[in-house]
Structure formats: C-alpha cells, structure tokens
Nucleic acid binder design. Structure first.
Lengths: 205, 205
DNA sequence: ATTATTCTAAAACGTTTGTTTCAAATTTTA
DNA sequence: TAAAATTTGAAACAAACGTTTTAGAATAAT
C-alpha cells in the first residue's frame, strides 16, 4: 500500500452539485417549524416551503429531526450574531443592559411568531437531549452576555442594590419568557412596555 | 298537538349507562397531553391511558380536540380552586402575595411536568381560538386574584413604591413563566428560589 | 463523446394517524 | 321475560405520516 491508496475511495468523477441553496432551504423550513412547532409541521409542509423534493432533503440534510436541529441551530446562531452586533461598543454597561431589555421587548411585540427557542423548550426540550443542548447553549450565551455587563455595572457602581450578579442575570432573563406568553395571550404592546420600563427602573435603584 | 308530545323524542327505553368515570378518564387524558403536548399525543396514547375504547370516547366526550378542550378546562379549573383555597383567610394582602409567589415557585420546581397552560399557550394558543379563550380566562383569574391583593396592599400602604397595580400584577405574573422555562433548562431549584426571594424583597421596598 | 457519478422528481413504501363501523354485550322499561 | 335502547370492544377505514425507491436528467472528469 502506498500513500495514494488512502484517497482511492474519494469520487473520481464528481457528478452534479446540489441544486438548491441549503441555507436558504433551512431558513424556509425554520419558518414552518416556527409557526407550527415540531410535531405540528409535516414533511410535506416543510418540503413545499423549502421548494425541494423529499429525496433531495434526505440526500443532503437528513430526516425530519436532523432538519429541525439545523433549523434551531440556525435560529439561535443568527440571534447570537444579532445580539453581538447590537451591544457592540456601548460605553456604559447599565445602558447596554437597558438597551438589551428594550430590544427584547421590541422584538417580542413586533415579530409575527413567538420565540422559536421558547416554543421548542416547552414542546420538545423535555425529552429531546439534542435539542436540550442547543437550547441550553443558547441560554448560556444570553446569560454570559448579560452577566458580563452586570458584573461591570456592579464594579463601577452603576448597579448598587445587589452584589449577586448571577441572581440578577436570571432575574432579568426570566422576564423575556413572561413577555412572550403575555403577548400571545393579550396582544398588548403597552403592557409589556410598562413592565420593561419598571424593570429598568428597578435596576437604577 | 298536546303537551305530552313535546317529550315524545326522549328515549322510552333507557339502556346501558356509561361504564367509565368520565372525570377520571379526562384526568388520565390530561396527563398524556401534559407530557406529550396536543400534537404529540395520539388517540391510541390517550385511549390506552384512559382505559377505554375509542368508540366509547367518541360516543361520550367527542373527538381529539373536544377531549383536549375538556382536559385543559379540567386543568385550569382545578388550579383555580387550589388557588382560592390557598389564599383563603390570610389577613395581610402583602403576605398573601408572598405566599402565592412562593407557592408558585414551589410547584414549578416540584411537579414532574411544566405547566400545561403555558405549554398549550406556546404550542396551539396562537391558532386555536377555543383554546385561546380558556387560556385567557385562566390568566384573567390569576390576574384578578393578584390585582385584588395588590390594590389592598397599596391602600393600606404595605406596598409603597408604586401606585400602578395593573403593571405590578403583570410584572409579578411574568416571572412564573420564566421560572418554568428556567427549570426545564437548568433543573435548578435554587436559581428559582433566589429570584423569587429577590422579587419578594422588591415588593417590600 | 463517453463514462462514472450524483442529483432530482414522482411514485410508492409500510406505519400511524384520527375516526367510524358493526356485531355482541348489557341494561332498562314494559 | 321479551323488546328496545345504548355502550362496548375489535376491527376496519381512508387519509396522512415520515421515509425510501427508482428511473432518468444533469454534470464533472476522462
């Protein structure tokens, strides 16, 4: 055996390339899961929205579950990027926290669907360990982002009423889920804006 | 036509009575929906848990959707009764609020499944108007219960930092949903207890 | 241009879905 | 006790489910 044998299993003739844009297709599938949930979305719903045949889907991305995993990864990753950009270069940590809270309230009361990560948490995260991991790391990202800001704010005494940064981070994050539920039930922006305003006032005490 | 004709359509021969206990069967079905969600629960899952045949189910309760409606009604109604009993005769409004918060935190970190009402809100309440109504009135109950206490607490100056009872009610309720999500993700009781403690401290300012 | 390879579309796959049928069992009224 | 009415269990229903197969179109390398 010589070195070239190692590569003998590689395709000699490279036939057709995949026709469809995988990222675009996943984004389309994500929208379906977002609206209908994991169990509520059928493969026919998905392939129709993606504009591809199920054979292409199974040849490239995989089965329904693998597709779902890619969709929520896509969702959480794009949210992370958006958050990074959003808080990029804000001098005051407390101002950054406030901006993050207001941006969350705005997103919740503006987007057509409630957060896919939260919907997924309540629908399948209890059973599905693979989903659990993604949801957990998404949550951890937000947590680290906020706790960094809170620790800084405590350090420079922008926040004076507590030294427990971990608790305060949890405390703030908890609100977002409640706002989502509230908005589904009442469809009332002002209720959420008022509580967001109050939460920010609390931070300034 | 005489008066007796009005009743002529009523059954003359009353045959068998329904064998199974409907309330018990609905309670069993509720557990299945609670674990698997609406779309995740199959009729075979449900009838097996209920211990009845699907023909009996369709003859008495109705189809899957009607069964689900009865299940979430059962869920919300029993929760309402429990809440009423719980706060029955507590002299101080603020103490009653605190008890309600602590009881919520305890339930969230103790029960095997996350709240059926919240799971339902995120899974189907966006589309299903019948479900929406039930969820909304369940929410309204909690809202009225809390706002009553908060208004009293403001009146007798147990709460001094705000006069906006509506906002504060929303603010408190919002936490519960967040705790549910947090507990699904982290399974950490102390994180929830800490934020509950902090929330109560805020009320005493 | 031929060959090897991969992609795509349509159809079909076996299961499972929610729901209905139907005969047998049961019970009440007469 | 006979007749009428209704529930029950088992089987069957069509439709939809997630997935696979298959034949042919497409394309890169020879």
């Amino acid at each position: 055996m010589n070195v070239s044998d190692i590569f003998i299993s590689l395709p000699v003739h490279m036939a057709r390339n995949v026709e469809f844009d995988e990222q675009l297709a996943i984004s389309k599938a994500m929208d379906v899961f977002w609206k209908k949930g994991y169990n509520g979305a059928s493969m026919r719903d998905l392939t129709e929205a993606m504009g591809i045949n199920s054979s292409s889907l199974y040849n490239t991305i995989g089965d329904k579950h693998q597709l779902f995993i890619k969709c929520i990864k896509h969702y959480t990753e794009s949210r992370m990027e958006a958050a990074k950009k959003q808080l990029h270069q804000i001098s005051s940590p407390l101002k950054a926290i406030e901006k993050y809270i207001n941006a969350s309230a705005y997103t919740i009361t503006t987007e057509p669907n409630s957060c896919l990560a939260i919907k997924t948490t309540f629908e399948v995260a209890t059973f599905d360990v693979e989903v659990q991991k993604i949801i957990k790391s998404d949550n951890e990202f937000t947590y680290q982002l906020l706790i960094g800001l809170i620790k800084k704010a405590i350090d420079i005494q922008e926040i004076k009423f507590t030294k427990d940064a971990e608790m305060l981070t949890d405390y703030i994050i908890n609100h977002f889920t409640g706002w989502h539920e509230s908005f589904i039930i009442h469809q009332d922006k002002t209720r959420i804006k008022k509580t967001a305003k109050f939460l920010i006032e609390q931070l300034n005490k």
